[in-house]
Computed example of a mutant assay.
Amino acid sequence: MAENGARRIRLGMVGGGTGAFIGAVHRIAARIDGDYELVAGALSSNPETAMESGKNLRLAEDRIYTSYEDMAAKESARPDGIEAVAIVTPNHVHFGPAKTFLEAGIHVICDKPVTSTLEDARALAEVQPKNGAKFLLTHNYTGFPLVRQARELVASGALGKLRVVQVEYPQEWLTEATDPDNKQAAWRTDPKRSGAGGAIGDIGTHAYNLARFVTGLTTEAVSADLQSFVPGRELDDNVHILLRFEGGARGMLWASQVAVGNENGLQLRVYGDKGGLEWRQDNPNYMWFTEFGKPKQLLTRGGSISAPPAASMNVRIPAGHPEGYLEAFATLYSQFAQVIRGEGDDVAPLLPSLADGIEGLEFIMAAVASSKADGKWTRLSDV
């Protein structure tokens, strides 16, 4: 991290202007470990909002842009130009900026899902980045220390042969019809901006990525039931999906934005023939691990039970002091900084990639196709 003497990486941002939720999250995450300095931005497609937002962030006026194309061209030509860019726009404005900046030799940090369509995701994989520019997809839940410890437990064989994976992500915030003035809700329920999936694309892909990251299992096929419970809503707001994994394990995924009483209830349970584990995002510093025939063990972030390197390398404060969502996000930023500096060989395999983004879109499209076919088992390889 920069606090250990490493130089700060010059960062730009596309999207994330005034009133945007996720842009502020990315900026906080980039600052936590001191690895980045935000120096440029195309913060809105509205020129007035772009200029106002840039001034509020104290960017130099000549580095406040009204289009990402202009930003990429001018920053790549500057000797002090940005080295990385964070793309925090609605889904349909991921592909263009990602392609443009990669081709300009600028590293890309992109919010999920990687694009709004599978075709665009696959096209992005064909881009030849200039000067070896790298790509990070911010599936931030993979940055929690105990999620990484869960991954290490599975990989070590502590759970034995995996049998059952259950993951869920319930929320309530879209229980009623969308308020047109709520920008966050408006674009997420609009297929032109969000893509083919509603809840499945917004939070279902997070749940799916978490399950895949921890278990390492490869998905063969899905059987899905996608519903739009709110009258007039064009995209799903509740999804139930059965998963078949290679090797015989089975899974269940539930994601909902109409589950009254739930704020952000992401949780994962994994069971093998030797043991099981349970983790919740709203209490992320604790995880239950049970070996068959033995009492449950409560594992804590930075606790007395020694954690593997992947889980301990990003523990910032002593056990008992909670770390959460922002710190997990910051871990991805900090470790991507190591990759950019050429020092991240040990962390690169832990960071969500473009390939993960493509699989996330394959998962969405397979689930949509399955639901339209009344839950027919649909292989990810067939979409």
Rank of each mutant, 00 (worst) to 15 (best):
N4M: 10
R8L: 09
F21I: 15
I22H: 15
A40P: 10
A42S: 14
S53N: 12
R58F: 15
R63I: 08
R63D: 06
T66G: 04
E69N: 10
M71H: 08
M71S: 03
M71Q: 07
M71Y: 01
A73R: 15
A86F: 00
T89Y: 03
H92S: 11
H94Y: 06
K99F: 04
H107V: 04
V108N: 03
L118W: 01
L124P: 05
K130H: 10
G132E: 10
L137D: 05
G143Y: 08
F144N: 02
A150N: 04
A155V: 00
A155P: 01
A158Q: 12
K161Y: 03
L162Y: 02
R163W: 09
V167R: 07
D179Y: 03
P180A: 14
P180D: 09
P191W: 14
G198Y: 01
A199S: 13
I200E: 03
V214P: 07
Q227W: 09
S228K: 07
V230K: 08
P231N: 12
R233F: 09
H240T: 14
G248S: 12
R250F: 11
W254G: 01
S256N: 02
E263G: 07
L266D: 02
Q267N: 15
R269C: 10
G276A: 15
L277T: 01
Q281F: 14
P284M: 07
P295R: 05
I305A: 14
S306H: 13
I317Y: 11
Y325P: 02
Y333I: 03
S334R: 15
F336M: 12
A337S: 08
R341Y: 09
G342A: 00
G344F: 02
D356F: 01
G360E: 08
F363A: 04
